[in-house]
Amino acid sequence: MISAETRGVFAIAPTPFMPGGALDVASLGRMTERYAGYGVDGLTILGIMGEAQKLEPEESLAVVREVVAHAGSLPVVVGVSAPGFAAMKRLSNAAMEMGAAGVMMTPPAAMRTDDQIAGWFAQAVAQIGTDVPFVLQDHPTATGVVMSTNVIRRVVEENPSCVMLKHEDWPGLEKISTIRRWQKQGDMRDLSILCGNGALFLDLEMGRGADGAMTGYAFPEMLRRVVDLAPRDRDAAQDIFDAHLPLLRYEHQPGVGLAVRKRILARRGFIAHADLRAPDAPCSEAACAEIDYLLERLAARDPGCGL
């Protein structure tokens, strides 16, 4: 199970599809084993990168089943966010029965005030069970839900099963510092903080006290090296991060970023096809050429990147 002591790198995994849009079940096992081979500490599935909103309920269960079966000892976190609690409860219960290590959830866009946000989490926990450890996903640029540090502390204190913050606010470095200050002062209980945002600020987030990364950048071994080096050799970690920054920036484009990431993961053998499920489209010919150029540059600047 994940806990407040969870550290390291959790790779956000995509959902692989066939060219016609069918779920590519065969790629799920290979993808999971490939991530494990690059030294991640865990996997997170059925998030925004996993195109979870495009899946049928039975497809979501199939993804969980295959990934958990191939993950071995790696903990798997399952995104269960949905407009209604019935779907969340079903997926959460099934995922935990299959061997998931916890779930990740965030409120729908209609939740605006602190009371609404805190109330939503209380209801969600009542539905999925107080014994299910969960990740509070704070990703306002994608969800439209703005969570202050005060409401995050309130959710954490009111729900002991909240063991991790997936920090994806932007700008959000001060949020990490505030939470860590409260914890040091004894004003907030311990909480694992893993950071997303495509790792675009991972170098600085580690300096603010983050415990690692939970994101889908197509080079998990870069995340591994930066997270491991940051506490003891900031300059070495920064050198690795700097070499990847042009590609990180390119991957972070709204709307096309997932297509970029899937193309790179397909090229690296994580998944068989770079296809997204409709209505999203793959990279254009021009984008593919730009990706190839950036990968060539990356291979020259960071020979250990795995290309």
Rank of each mutant, 00 (worst) to 15 (best):
C288S: 10
N197W: 10
T44F: 14
T106V: 13
L74W: 12
G47V: 08
M188P: 00
G47C: 06
T143F: 05
D190G: 06
Q253K: 14
G198Y: 07
I176E: 03
A218L: 09
A237P: 01
F134T: 00
R180C: 02
L247M: 13
W182Y: 10
Y293G: 02
P279G: 07
A142N: 12
P19K: 12
D203G: 05
E296W: 06
R34D: 00
M31G: 05
P16F: 15
P246D: 09
E56H: 10
R65P: 00
Y35S: 03
M188G: 00
P246I: 07
S284T: 15
D242P: 00
I179D: 01
E290T: 12
V9M: 08
G269P: 04
K262D: 04
A213Y: 07
G212P: 03
A299I: 04
A126F: 00
R263M: 09
A286R: 14
P107H: 13
T143H: 07
L307D: 03
G42S: 08
A210F: 07
G216D: 14
A101H: 09
M31H: 10
G37V: 06
S92I: 07
G21D: 09
E296S: 13
G79V: 02
E97G: 01
H244S: 01
Y217V: 04
G47T: 08
D211L: 05
L276W: 11
E168D: 09
T130V: 02
K89N: 03
T32L: 07
P14H: 14
T44M: 14
D280Y: 15
E56F: 09
V68I: 15
K184A: 15
P160L: 05
G20K: 14
D114A: 07
P16Q: 13
L265Q: 15
Y293S: 06
V135Y: 11
T141K: 14
G186N: 08
M96H: 03
M18G: 00
G207E: 12
K175G: 00
F134K: 01
P57S: 05
M206P: 03
L28F: 05
D233V: 05
I117L: 04
C283V: 15
K89S: 05
Q116K: 04
V145M: 04
P19E: 09
R277M: 11
C288F: 03
E59G: 03
A95R: 05
K54Q: 07
L46C: 01
P303M: 12
I2E: 11
F17Q: 04
L200Q: 11
N150H: 13
M49L: 13
S27N: 09
L28M: 14
